[in-house]
Every structure is written in structure tokens, then in C-alpha cells.
Design a protein around this nucleic acid. Sequence first.
DNA 1: CGGTTTTGACCTGCGC
DNA 2: GCGCAGGTCAAAACCG
Length: 385
Amino acid sequence: MPNSVRRPSHKITGKMNEMKENNNISSVCTNSMEKREEKKELTRTTILKRENFDMANSSFITPPPATTTSDIDQMPSVYALSTTATPPPPLNSIFDMMPCDIIGGDQKAGSLGFIDLLDINQDFGTAASLFDWFAQNPIVGSQQQQTFVPSPASTLPETSEVLNNPATPNSSASISSSSNEAGNDAFQQVKTGDQEEEQDHDKTKKQLKPKKKNQKRQREPRFAFMTKSEVDHLDDGFRWRKYGQKAVKNSPYPRSYYRCTSAGCGVKKRVERSSDDSSIVVTTYEGQHIHPSPITPRGSIGILTDSTGFGAATSSFVIPQTQYQQHAYMYSSSPSLNITTSNTSFSPTFSFHQRRSDSPASLLRDHGLLQDIVPSQMRKEPKEE
DNA sequence: CGGTTTTGACCTGCGC
DNA sequence: GCGCAGGTCAAAACCG
């Protein structure tokens, strides 16, 4: 499926060669066959994981394999950053039992659908997947407090990390839905709050083609998450075309740029590995999908769909998400960090992730990602409350 | 042949 | 203005 490296080794840039010499990076191979085989191996892992899940019954056929013996086995450490103004709306679905930001920080209609979660899950590589955890920890109902397992204080998060932003990956949000009008409104607020992007859809193109001078480039809201995976490009249910790759400063790993292949859809995403922990992949989405996911056929999982039929068509979940807190939250696994959900309104009792040099926030901050995701004012450390 | 990836060149924003 | 780094373009190569 992936074309992998299609050029002879001599085509690889010096930087890449350098990277290969210094790291055991799966994505950096000067030998195309090597890389291809490597990809196959990774894909195999992915498939195995998917097979563990009974799509028809929405349950695991066999217990998902645990990867560690730590608390992380119990539940994934999930970190999230949300950048919107108010708490998310009520979650009256399966999402009630999920860290909302995992399934999407989308302000319009929820981002990553259940299917998409699966897709992500399937590519978690060796990490204990979120889905694994969900399957094992059927937290049902509301008024439930979820305390996420802390990640090792000395290192990066062990499993996955979600950084949320108004924008979400496969948000069906751009398509109006009776079930999430509020979400749409909220989304508008979010967009206008951040920047006036009425034609955000066309904006991307504009900013690419005739780059007018003195016209400050405005970016789509972003949504980023971190996953521990051997696979760089996670399958999120959408089709992407790689349009660029750049070496990242202070990082041996390159950053790849992808664009949604759907006509008119300007959603982009970039994927890079953490320089500190090569097993962690940081995926950043930018923009809103204006179309259903083309690769979410596992419809039996579609527990929730949106009334427009959009969600139904895609088997993706649509969360009438509105706005999030106008701060960068860390859905942390730290014992002191809790997420409490309510059945009437999603008013998570967020606790700010304590500043730690090795925290995901600082990680992103230090590596230039956070600044792209979270508005500057929000990047400021939350005040003690 | 159409779609995707690769990759050097180019553009843009920003700090100095 | 200059240099740097991030982001994008687009031709060529590649794959099914």
C-alpha cells in the first residue's frame, strides 16, 4: 500500500543518510527494500491488532495484548490540550466513556470517530492502544471520573497523547447537523475567536497559490495528538497524500506533510517523531474535513451517527462538541489529574498538568509543536488555582 | 494511466 | 536586510 521509498538510495538526502546512521528509525532507510520490509512488518502488527477486534460485535475477539505491566496497561495515558473557550458539550454516547479529546477536540461535531479511533488504534504499533483500554474498561454512564494513569515522570508519555484544538481531524463538523447545531455555532465561535476564517475552506488554497504580501497567513485551528507507534503515518480513515518532508531542527527525525486527497478538502496533517522518544509519533491535523471518511467501512461500529446522515455514512461519530476551555489542558494520567464527565454537560474537572520539563506540554513546547497548536496566550503556564 | 511519494527549490514569517 | 527554519510546490519517479 504505501509506496515507501521509491527512489534509489543515492536519492536520499545527506540528512536522511545521516539520520539512518545515527538512529534506528523505521522511516528512514536508504534501502528501499529494507524500508518496504519494515513497513510490512509494521503493517502486520497493525492487522493483528485489528483482528483482535470483532467489528460486528464491537468487542475484542481475544483480549488485547498488554504491552507492559505498568498502570498503562489499565488505561492509556492521555494528554490533551484544548484551546477553545468553553467546556465541551454533553456527551450522550459512547464518548461519555472516552476521554473526549481522544475522539476529537472538534468543536463542531467531534473529530475522530469511533472508527477513526480504531484506525488509530490499529496503528499503535506496540503500544497498548486506547481502544484496547476502552474495551477492557467499559466505563459507562456519566458522572464518571476518569483518572488517567500517569506517564513516567522522567520520560515522555508511554502510550498516547492527545493534544486538542478546535480543529480536529476527520470532523464531519463542517457539515451541518441537527444534532450538533450548537456544535456548529460553537465552532463558528471558535473559528472567529481564533481568527476570522469564514472561507477557511478556500483559505488554504489562497495561502498556497498567490501568496499576497502583507497578508498574514492564517492557519486553520489545529489538533494534534501523540501516539506511541512504530508507524509514522497513522491510519485515521482518511486518505492523505504526502506533499512534503522536512528535516526538523534539533530532531533527527523528519517531518512529513500530508494533505487530504479529497477534492476541495484542505485538511492537512503533519507527522513527526519525537526527538526525545522515537517511539512517539506526533500527528498534527489542520483544518476541517468537508467530506465523510472514505475509509471507514467498518460500519458496524458506528454506534453513534449524526442526524444528517453524514456520520451514518461514514460510521463516524459526531459529537456536538462546542467549545473547550480556553486553556491548554492536559488530560494526564497523573494521579492528580482527573477528568470528570457529567451527563448533563461535559464539564470535566480538569487539573492542569504540572509543569515538568518532560511533560508532553513542555515536550511540544520545546519542540515547536505546541506553539503551532496552542495560541500563544494559552501556552502560558496555567496559573495556580 | 492515475494516484502517490520523493525531494530540491522556492516562499514566507520571524528574530536579530 | 539577512539568515534561519517551517511550510509548500512541482517535476520526476514509482507503484498497482
